[in-house]
């Protein structure tokens, strides 16, 4: 029961942290120079990720995490209550 909960938690963490790594270290640093050859408006894309985009993604990631974890906590508690009443 608790093990399932922890495993789902670790799964959520690894997916979200992969995105975290990709938008900052990936697009903002490692592939930044490559992405700089493409432009949206006045922004080179690598430059935009390094100075703007990564920050927006960070905010977005935390709220996704809040949403997923609240859902996971709720289902865990429901299962626990069901076990108790059985």
């Amino acid at each position: 029961m608790y093990k399932d909960y922890w495993r789902s938690n670790l799964k959520i963490l690894s997916i979200l942290l992969t995105v975290w790594f990709l938008v900052s270290f990936g697009f903002g640093i490692i592939f930044s120079d490559f992405l700089d050859q493409f432009k949206i408006g006045g922004f080179k894309i690598g430059f935009w990720f390094a100075q703007q985009g990564s920050i927006y993604f960070f905010v977005f990631l935390i709220f996704i995490y809040v949403y997923l974890m609240n859902k996971l906590d709720k289902s865990y508690k429901e299962k626990m209550n069901k076990n108790k009443s059985d």
Binding site: L16, S54, F58, Y65
Partner: peptide, 16 residues
Amino acid sequence: SVYLMGWTGGYVLLAL
């Protein structure tokens, strides 16, 4: 950019 990403990205680690 190191300051922009560095000083915001840490919050993802904190929260998660």
